[in-house]
């Protein structure tokens, strides 16, 4: 799980072009939006694309999406349980 979270963090960095940031600088439980990484609504769409392209996960319920994209930990948990590729 720990290795997977590092991989996921690197994918988030690449997908959102977070220049100069390293996986170890992202806290597993820090909020992705608002405080923490400070991402915005376009980033949330980019993260949905990341989930679909890399793990075959399509989230169509906005409320569920909000829960999944709370933190790296919540994303990792959801991916482990629902990944199709």
């Amino acid at each position: 799980m720990e290795d997977f979270k590092v991989t996921l963090k690197q994918q988030i960095i690449d997908s959102l072009n977070l220049q100069g940031m390293k996986p170890e600088e992202i806290d597993d439980n820090a909020p992705l939006f608002g405080e923490g990484l400070g991402l915005d609504s376009i980033d949330s769409l980019e993260l949905m694309v990341l989930l679909e392209r890399n793990y075959g996960i399509k989230i169509e319920d906005a409320r569920e999406g909000r829960k999944v994209l709370t933190s790296v930990q919540s994303m990792a948990d959801y991916i482990q349980q629902n990944r199709k590729i």
Partner: peptide, 10 residues
Amino acid sequence: EFKEEALNPT
């Protein structure tokens, strides 16, 4: 490449 699905919004 992604067959018109999962396209980046940016």
